[in-house]
Design a binder for these strands. Structure first.
Lengths: 335, 335
DNA sequence: TTGAAAGCGTTACCAA
DNA sequence: TTGGTAACGCTTTCAA
């Protein structure tokens, strides 16, 4: 059994209050006594029991993180950011993966509450109303991270999706492309998706030579990209560039083109959105919009910790900068 | 403030002992009283405070998981397995990433102890002696997961690396390859690495037409694979296949070959080891040895939970089956 | 079947 | 500057 504060007190010949004071530096303790206590602590290898501490202080130094699936590299990346910054402030994270199960989401929310977490970060696609209730009830700091959907009700950290799509489209135009397909994901109503689409539209509309060509996919996985690429290749004649609303789709498109001997970028330029891990590894490397997933996680937990410390929050949403990552899947049109 | 057991007791007009009994089903309670208590619990939305519970029962239902970096897809995969199985037994996980910092490893080990975790899974490369001390001292169930190194002292879950390399080499030989380069990672002493190497050697030695050609890399990242591929291409004439001891290296090799217009698999076959996520996505898709990372995590936590339940452990190491994943990076030699 | 009370390992208040 | 003690929210004896 591990040593307790009592053991330390006894061995040091002082009261437990005194021991508590030296470990917490909460009240003055005479130098001599402090020294003795410290020695005993060292000797016994004493470490305060955080559970007992939490019970009285209400501070668990635990943040709950609910994610759909760590298997998605961008989620793992966000969690990295959350954890690393959390640790800087002595916070640990309890991880809960739902694997897409909405009821699990609620279950974990409650569970985390019983474990006395001080804040919760949810990385998920869609917030259902039931969740809403639970979150409001458990009035602890909450941040909602999401690559797909925008919900005004909760603080979030994101990039300017409209601007990003607008810039990327303009980049393609600047390369000489005029027939640029935009591949959007139509699964349910996704505000972020709409913003991206509008960004593309704006850029296209500003250029007389360009025309809008939009394809919708059911999902946003590699397979969906693969399938839509077939559609595009079969139905479109003059297309020279495909701008996908997610890297996953772009990787699928690239795979289809590879499998069908269509050269990228000489015959077709492809761009993505996200800069997930594989984007820089796949051949050809993918030109894409870098969403700072690590930073998004880092900023999210930073916000929670600030709130915990009672600092007042400026506003709900935090917009982080994005970048156009130029790589090899994309090139100038040869005249 | 959330409702406590006291609130429930008061409102139900019973003692807290009784309430405790109904939530735990620990002792008989008369049906009528049980009903009343249950109603009050419902009405108040009462959920027992797990922290208080842990303090008395010593059961935190928390397992600590220390990893180097979730960014490695195979680690994320292991963690998925750990978490999903853990949840089946009501265990949650506290995640700690060290990002390669050995001192952080020890720090987290202690930290997790103070948080009263009931078991610890370490996913890391090398176990240093200092760790050893701490683990032994904190006599809680421990499993050591590792893709690189074998340590007899701790329970682990792995595959038969020797056999896997032996089979893969034979597979290449069966395809008609005789000049097969094995790319090993020489970073420090890695027992697993040695086992793989011996598997390759045995297969080669059993076939008169084959000869051993071994290259060593410093690290096991994609870059290391890229560089070693250049070496191989520049120094070897008749090589038709490259067997890499890690998928990461194989992806690097594939990238180099792609960048230098060497056709895979027609001009060169490439195989890996691991079947990390990207192996099936990259083009050409990678023929490799599938290590069941998810299952490894799942079995690891299963073992811990068993130990927690007092079931006696058969033996330390658990060997899981592997599979040769045949994909497109590898083909028959044309005569 | 029920309730009272001790105890889990701390912190924090109140006296001394 | 120190020590005693209540309290945190719960489980678990022990009596009744």
């Amino acid at each position: 059994m591990a040593a307790t504060i009592k053991d330390v007190a006894k061995m040091a010949g002082v009261s437990i209050s005194t021991v508590s004071r030296v470990i917490n530096d909460s009240k003055p303790v005479s130098p001599e006594i402090r020294k003795v206590v410290l020695e005993v602590i060292e000797e016994l290898g004493y470490k305060p029991n955080e559970i007992a501490r939490t019970l009285v202080t209400k501070k668990s130094f635990l943040i709950g993180v609910i994610v759909t699936d760590l298997g998605d590299s961008y989620i793992a990346e966000m969690v990295r950011g959350i954890e690393e910054v959390g640790k800087m402030y002595d916070y640990d994270i309890i991880l809960c993966s739902t694997f897409g199960d909405k009821s699990a989401e609620i279950k974990y929310l409650q569970l985390l509450n019983t474990k006395q977490v001080e804040g919760i970060i949810l990385i998920s696609n869609i917030l259902n109303e039931e969740m809403d209730d639970h979150i409001k009830k458990s009035r602890i700091p909450f941040v909602y991270l999401n690559r797909y959907y925008y919900d005004q009700d909760y603080p979030t950290v994101t990039i300017d999706n409209f601007e990003a799509a607008y810039e990327m489209t303009n980049y393609l135009i600047s390369l000489g492309h005029t027939n640029i397909v935009y591949v959007a994901n139509s699964e349910k109503e996704h505000s972020l998706e709409m913003m991206k689409l509008e960004g593309y539209r704006k850029a296209i509309s500003e250029n007389e030579l360009c025309k809008e060509i939009i394809y919708f996919t059911k999902g946003r996985n590699i397979d969906d990209g693969y399938n839509v690429a077939r559609d595009i290749v079969n139905h479109e004649e003059d297309v020279t560039a495909i701008f996908c609303s997610y890297d996953e789709l772009a990787i699928g498109v690239l795979s289809y083109l590879h499998d069908n001997n269509i050269k990228v970028p000489s015959e077709m330029s492809v761009t993505g959105f996200g800069d997930i891990k594989i984007a820089s590894i796949f051949r050809p490397t993918l030109t894409t919009i870098k969403e700072p997933f690590y930073d998004i996680g880092a900023v999210a937990i930073r916000r929670i910790i600030k709130e915990l410390k009672g600092e007042k929050m400026d506003k709900n949403d935090i917009i982080l900068p994005f970048q156009i990552q130029k790589r090899n899947s994309c090139s100038k049109i040869d005249e």
